[in-house]
Each structure stands twice: as C-alpha cells, then as structure tokens.
Simulated assay, not measured.
Amino acid sequence: MKQIFKFIEKYFFIVILLAVGISLIYPKSFQWVLSNYNGINVLNLMLSMVLFTMGTTLKADDFVNVFKNPKEIGVGISAQYIIMPLIALALANVFSLNTALTVGLILVGTVPGGTASDVITFLSGGDVALSVSLTAVSTIISPILTPMITLLLIGNQIHFNPVDMFVSIIEIVIIPIIVGLVLNYKFPDFCAKLKDYLPALSSIVICLIVAGVIGANKQAIFTSSEVIIVVVILQYFIAMLLGFGVGYLVGMDKKQIITVAIELAFQNSGLSTGLAKTHFPSMSQATVPGALYSVWQNFAGSILSYVFRRYSN
C-alpha cells in the first residue's frame, strides 16, 4: 500500500493527466465534486482536507525560520503578492479575456503558494526550509491579502464581498491548518507515520477537484482552449523567470533563487478554483484558469525539477 502512495506522490503529473483525460471523456463522472450535500460544499471540504494535511507536516520551527531569514522571506512574500497578481492582470488585458476568465486568472494570481512547491523544491535541490516557510507564511496571511488584492484589481468591474472571501479563506485554509498543527503537536509520532500517505492523498484530492472543474466546463474549455491555455502557460513561465530575476537581484544563493522562483510560480490553484465557485457562482468559466493552472504547474514542475537540480549543484 505504501508503495502505491509513493508512486502517486512521485508521478503526480501522470495521475492528474489521467484524471483530466477521464473528465473530458466522461465529464459527468466527477460532477459530484462541485455539488452540495446537506448544505456542505464538497469542493471546499476537499480543499480543507488538503490544508489539514499541510498542517500536520508543520511545526513551530517552520515559523521560527521567518525570523532567521527575514530578507529571503520578505522578498518571497512580496513577490508572491505583488508580482503574481500583476502578471495575471497584465495577461488578462493583453489577451482580452472575458470577465469570467479574468476573474479566474486574477484569483490564481492572488492566492498563496501551493503545497506542491515544497515537493518540487526538494526534487529541484532548492532550499526546502525556505520553501516551507514561504508557503506557510503566504497561506497564513492569505485571508487578508487575497481578498484585498482581488478587490483592488477587479473590484471596480465585478461586485463581490471581500469580507465573505476573508471568512471563506479562514474556514477553508486557516482552521484546517491550525487543527493539523495541533494534531502534530499533540501526536508527533502519529503524524510522522502519516507523512508516507498524506502527500499522495492530497494529490488525489487535487486531481478530483481539477477533474470536476474541467468536466463541468468541457465545452467552455474547448471553445476558448487555445487562448486560456496559452495564458496559463505564460503566467507560469513569466512567474518562474521573474522569480529567478528577483532572487538574483537581491543576492540570494542558487538554492534560494530556485526556491523563490518555484514558490512564485506554484500557486494554490485549488483554492482559487474554490473561491471562484463560491464567490462568483454565476461565472462558471471563472473556475477554469485554476483547474488548468493546477494541471500545468505540476506537469511542467516535475520536468523542470531535473533541470533545476543540475543548476543548483
């Protein structure tokens, strides 16, 4: 059983491509992911599971690293919440995306870094401790910055309630992480055993979310596929290149430069999808950029990690 979970963790990009393929052939097979049962939003519940697993891997020491590396953390977080949203806004304007796709792309840019960045950083020979700290800090402050930046970028075009988004992120992100942290503090040995299984479990949940969104928006993806796919790929690579540039300009070492680049490009796209569905329910296409970004970042990241490892040595 452990070998199966390790396989899923290592070859996540294959699993997610398989899920996407099934969702395009049998779109209704993952319809339940976007449903509500007894008033519970299934997609948000699944996202909470992913953030809970992240919490079980964190310790107080991960946050202490913030004070040990204030420069690197400050640069990484600033890039996360300044550069990434601006890339999204610029691409939406350059490619004249419709309102729904613009909302989805902006949300991809304003959410915190994704947990997959820690794994890719490890495979790339980067600074794993820095990656964990950046992911944790960007996630913890996301209830404030994600709604605020989203409102700043699109609030004059689309009405939404940033306070409601703040509450959603608290419910989906912060509470599950705190529960995971407490569990790790109280039962460290138990959580250590879970580490062999939780990354793969999180990967499976993300695959289901992506498959559900893509299946539900199959027609919309095909009608606008070329444009939005190009935009998503550009968003990823521009973020990666700017991450390298920022790290180099502030004098980081090779491992730290790789880490900042990965952290900037890897977004919590599942959260962006959940926020799009919850706060922009009339815009079904708003969930598409997050789903496509999740597929691309994991596929490209798995390949680029080999190149990065050679660069870090």
Rank of each mutant, 00 (worst) to 15 (best):
V173E: 00
D61Y: 03
I158F: 10
S124K: 04
I303N: 11
I106W: 05
F67M: 13
G247M: 02
S23I: 00
I22R: 08
V119Y: 15
I257T: 10
G109K: 00
N184M: 04
T223S: 15
A200M: 05
F122P: 04
L208Y: 08
V50R: 08
D253V: 09
C207Y: 01
G243T: 04
D127G: 07
I169C: 01
T139S: 12
T139R: 01
L47W: 03
I83H: 06
V94L: 15
Q31F: 10
G55L: 01
I172E: 03
T121E: 01
L208S: 13
Y311N: 07
E171P: 02
S284C: 00
A192E: 15
S269V: 05
V20F: 11
I16D: 07
K255Q: 15
L153W: 01
V132R: 01
E263N: 13
Q80V: 06
V66K: 00
V15Q: 02
I120D: 02
T99N: 09
L208A: 15
A19V: 08
S117Y: 06
T99K: 13
N161S: 13
V33N: 08
L271P: 09
R310M: 12
K186Y: 11
G274H: 07
E171F: 10
I209T: 01
S269T: 15
V50C: 10
F166M: 11
I229E: 04
K254G: 02
P70G: 08
P143Q: 05
I22G: 05
I87F: 04
L45T: 14
A129S: 14
F237H: 02
L152H: 04
V42Q: 07
I238E: 09
F308L: 14
I40S: 10
M54Y: 06
G155R: 00
V50A: 10
Y11W: 14
G76Q: 03
N69A: 12
T115R: 01
S225Y: 12
T223K: 11
I158L: 10
D196S: 15
V103Q: 03
K277P: 00
F52W: 04
M252G: 06
Y311A: 13
A211Q: 04
N93Q: 14
Y306F: 14
Q31R: 13
N98M: 04
Q267Y: 08
S225F: 14
K255E: 12
P147C: 03
F280H: 02
I4F: 14
Y293D: 09
L304M: 11
Y185W: 06
N38F: 15
P188G: 06
A216Q: 12
G290E: 03
A291S: 10
F187I: 09
G301A: 04
L34S: 08
P188M: 00
P143I: 01
L198K: 06
G76H: 06
M49F: 15
Y293P: 10
S225D: 07
L101P: 09
F222G: 12
N93E: 08
V210Y: 02
L234T: 05
I175C: 07
G212E: 11
K195L: 06
I77T: 07
M46H: 04
T278G: 00
P85A: 00
S269I: 04
D253F: 02
P188D: 07
F299W: 12
A100M: 01
G180E: 01
L134W: 00
F67W: 09
L101F: 09
A286Q: 02
